[in-house]
Design a protein around this nucleic acid. Sequence first.
RNA 1: GACCCGUUCGUCUAGUGGUUAGGACACCGCCCUUUCACGGCGGUAACACGGGUUCGAGUCCCGUACGGGUCGCCA
Length: 452
Amino acid sequence: MTVRTRFAPSPTGFLHIGGARTALYNYLFAKGRGGSFVLRVEDTDAERSTSESMDIILDSLKWLGLDWDEGPGIGGEFGPYNQSERGEIYDRYLSKLEEAGHVYEDEGAIRFRVPDKTITVQDVICGEVSVNLKEQGSRRYNTETKQEEEANPDIVIKRPNGGYIFHFVNVVDDIEMGITHVIRGEDHLSNTPKHLALFEAFGATPPTFAHIPLNLNQSGTKMSKRDQGALIHEYREAGFLPDAVNNYMALLGWSAKDDTEIFDAKELRSRFDISGVNNSNSKFDYDKCKWVNAEHLKKLSAADLLEAATPFLTAAGLPADDARMPAALELARDRAQLLSEIPEVLATIFAEEVSYDKASLEKVKSREGIAGAVTALRNGLASVEDWSIDGIKAGIQSAADGMGAKMGMLMLPCRVGVMGSTSGADLIPVLELLGKEAVLKRLEGFEGLLDA
RNA sequence: GACCCGUUCGUCUAGUGGUUAGGACACCGCCCUUUCACGGCGGUAACACGGGUUCGAGUCCCGUACGGGUCGCCA
């Protein structure tokens, strides 16, 4: 049987890291087995659903590259994929329940009679979970009075205003869309017996269930919008690569058993296995997420790096299309964990004027004979004919020799003189990139600064 | 409160009765080096607790504690 999974977001907010990971697991599982990944919009609550929210969720999913085979924007043979447009199908399924006497009206709403028996969920991740809905549902906890109250265990599946309820539409659509595997958050584990009762009432074979553990924040509570790393659309702006985010999310609850942690998109698809997902909640770690991103940054081809970095370069006013940019990016990629950190590494290279860091300047100024050293350095570099790594190195070396000093003596003054700071990328490649003329000009300006 | 799920270094995890309990992030130290990074090497650090079962338990069973989830005419 061909695997069919689905991600069924409700358009009432942003795409959250937890939802994104659920989508990812569904995507990876389906794709890894030559199956289909369906996107279904659960917008039966007209009050809370918004198209703005839907746009953000869809954009986030697209950015992550979790392309759906069927769903909004591309259709498919089981559409429509917005539940708000599937009323006729739900009506049809409701009549089936009516005919079989499974439902009754209650103050305008329709309730589904839950069976008075133990229902057992066979979950791929959580194992067997049994519950009796009738017993369980006949008491309700009132969070305000902190008391248990009598309650009607039969679940409402249709509102008095005609709108259908989650449990019902969720099951109907999983049947109608031929979903074979339901991979969702563990917060739905307690709902599953209700769904199983509905599958049985419809005479349908339920899909395989896999309830994945939840992602919590550093404090061990539910991730909220305010927690760093909670919202997918913020990752792009923060300078993450989509594959890195997928990679990190996959690691929250799943691992390849051989200690491999970095996977490209293709490897993730082939190696992910839902049965390898563990069953305890995890805490989100932004530092590790950044580390994973850094690893992906290192593996990017020059062309892909340029493409990924371009929006950040442009935003910082750096010339992304400059012929020297690919080489400059090579100097920056090992120093950045996020794409957003790259511009600051490169800013001084492309700047018209060097802005000198005060502390760096003081440090160099305090050296004895610094002015003479810089002049000697500039002369040494001025005499370089072959402006290459080796040539530049030789130029600095000869200046040092003339002073009876080691080359290292001149490196720091050179760095501060040309780049304005004691820290930064590999200096000699930077000098090469800058070009002889610019380097000499900067050193000259630096000499003036030292004289003052 | 009832029911359900869970508990290995600070964090993510490997581990399916016999291991010096492994890896990764973070942290610390050393090395590399023209600085900072990168990289390399090394270090600190964990089986929640109590009972069983067993020759032997992180691994199996029970209980306790703690954490999470559910208990809507939200999804």
